[in-house]
Design a protein around this nucleic acid. Structure first.
Lengths: 225, 225
DNA sequence: TTTAATTTTTAGGTTTGTCTAAAAAAATTA
DNA sequence: TAATTTTTTTAGACAAACCTAAAAATTAAA
């Protein structure tokens, strides 16, 4: 397997972060913002990454990682988080000063190094920021973390665990659509213009939720669909 | 202080090695050989490094490091040797497999990181190859009474203390014949025609070493036999 | 639905670090 | 010392990764 440039690795990593946290297809502009470069540079690079089989890219439609691209991105994230753990646990760095150094260390290319480090650190599951460390095979154990529904990306399956607003009307509305505690729902689409979202309830009903509503529903992430 | 590119750092490091070990003024060609590139590329870069004040360079006459260039080179070597020590002492790498990884790690830019690592390793004075580790201020403690094996007379018993060449092939060769650090060996005979020598390892095996190899093994004199 | 605004792409440059081929200088040899 | 060989430099190109400015596509608004 040929090795990627640091720049290419950073692109894959950011596409991964954006597509799990924010958008299903990652737009040129949002990548440009994350990578501190211009949209035209992003377009250039996306075309190259698509040629090499790391991303799917359609002009004007944004991109997402291929299986290959995703597995590479995950390994970079694994390295990043293991190094952060090393810096904090062994070298007594503060957890806020590790990021910049880990950004460099994550590009060191040696499988033996990273596996030895993992062993040396006793196979930690989470980094100093609480983020999960992917294992050698790229499996990521997501912590049972509670999110606002509005933060969840499309095509995610989540479980309702709480509703923070004490509005009787809201609770009734949710009840009517089968959105009660412990029920599952699927995020279908997010509309950036008003930050509303379309979801499918456990019953199969499709429902539109406004920003206000989606902010007040707390969910546990279950899976990507 | 602006940071140098990895390429620039590698140039300074090689100029340092060549000018302390081989030639006073480093020639374009010898740099080209060490850096695996063409003489014309070296010329280009030397002109840039001279402009930036890292080397003194006179056309057709070769180059040497300025005080600034040398202090940078020494810090890179410090990082390289500290990382090698980390890999061997903490991650249980073999001393012959550390070089390639340390070549990458030596370019990580963080003063805090390298000083913390130094502390974590307990301020080691020598790396796994027996080479001295420069301290924070760039001071290098050269070991006394250490000779190149090639300088030692027949019928001497010596102890291997360092291997100066970072050649994986050489390190493997030595490892295979039981010539590791702290092992003893006996010089049996020297052949003037090609400056090779015959030695007996600690295991009792008789081995012929070329001039090139014998130059790169550093030993401590123990006794006449 | 037509216009206006925004996003994205294309076209053409720049810098870094490399290369090959040819020219120039230095060193060696006869 | 003149001729030859070796070393080094110059000149011109190329790929990676970026940029600006302008064009094209998409999205939003009137």
């Amino acid at each position: 397997m040929k090795t990627l440039s640091q720049t290419e690795e950073n692109y894959l990593k950011e596409i991964f972060h954006l597509s799990t946290a924010v958008e299903d297809r990652v737009s040129t502009n949002s990548l440009a913002a994350r990578l501190n470069s211009k949209a035209s540079s992003i377009t250039d690079m996306l075309q190259k990454l698509a040629d090499k089989g790391f991303v799917e890219y359609v002009k004007y439609k944004g991109c997402f990682l291929t299986e290959l691209g995703e597995s590479i991105a995950i390994q970079i994230i694994r390295k990043h988080r293991l190094w952060e753990t090393f810096l904090v646990n062994k070298l007594n760095f503060g957890w806020e000063e590790v990021h910049a150094v880990a950004e460099q260390l994550e590009h060191i290319d040696s499988l033996k190094l990273i596996d030895s480090l993992d062993h040396f650190l006793n196979y930690p599951k989470f980094d100093p920021h609480g983020d999960p460390i992917p294992d050698k095979n790229g499996n990521i154990v997501y912590r049972e973390s509670i999110l606002q529904l509005i933060e969840v990306a499309p095509n995610s399956l989540v479980e309702v665990v709480a509703v923070s607003e004490d509005s009787l009307a809201l609770l009734k509305f949710l009840e009517q659509h089968g959105l009660r505690l412990e029920s599952e729902l699927e995020i279908l689409e997010k509309y950036p213009f008003d930050e509303s979202m379309r979801i499918r309830s456990a019953k199969g009903e499709e429902i539109n939720l406004s920003k206000k509503v989606a902010e007040n529903i707390r969910v546990k992430f279950l899976a990507k669909i």
